[in-house]
């Protein structure tokens, strides 16, 4: 079970969180003309990569904040975690 450092609450076990997928996906702006391909990329297409992955988790049984977690999908190593509004450098 992963041990995730919630930027608001500290180290908490994975069973307090729910997974939210790739954090690098940006929703197209409202009212913007979007091509089929662009929209498909936003809704469906994910890299599903092996290695370092920036992903969303929600601390659902805790502070209910969505956070960003930089995790290795192969080894489960967690490098850094960020608040929702924090820029990932």
């Amino acid at each position: 079970m992963l041990y995730i450092n919630c930027p608001h609450c500290g180290m908490r076990s994975q069973n307090e969180f729910s997974y939210g997928g790739d954090a690098s996906v940006k929703r197209p702006e409202l009212n913007k003309e979007v091509s089929d391909q662009e929209w498909d990329n936003f809704v469906y297409n994910r890299k599903s990569l092996r290695g370092k992955h920036l992903e969303l988790w929600q601390h659902i049984s805790g502070c209910r904040q969505w956070i960003k977690v930089e995790r290795d999908t192969a080894t489960h190593e967690i490098f850094r975690t960020f608040k929702a509004d924090e820029e990932v450098a």
């Binding site: 729910s18 939210g20 929703r27 929600q58 659902i60 209910r64 904040q65 969505w66 929702a84």
Partner: peptide, 13 residues
């Protein structure tokens, strides 16, 4: 609730 929180926290803060 999670859905609303997602949009408020991440998409339209």
């Amino acid at each position: 609730l999670s859905h609303l929180e997602y949009y408020l926290q991440l998409v339209w803060p």
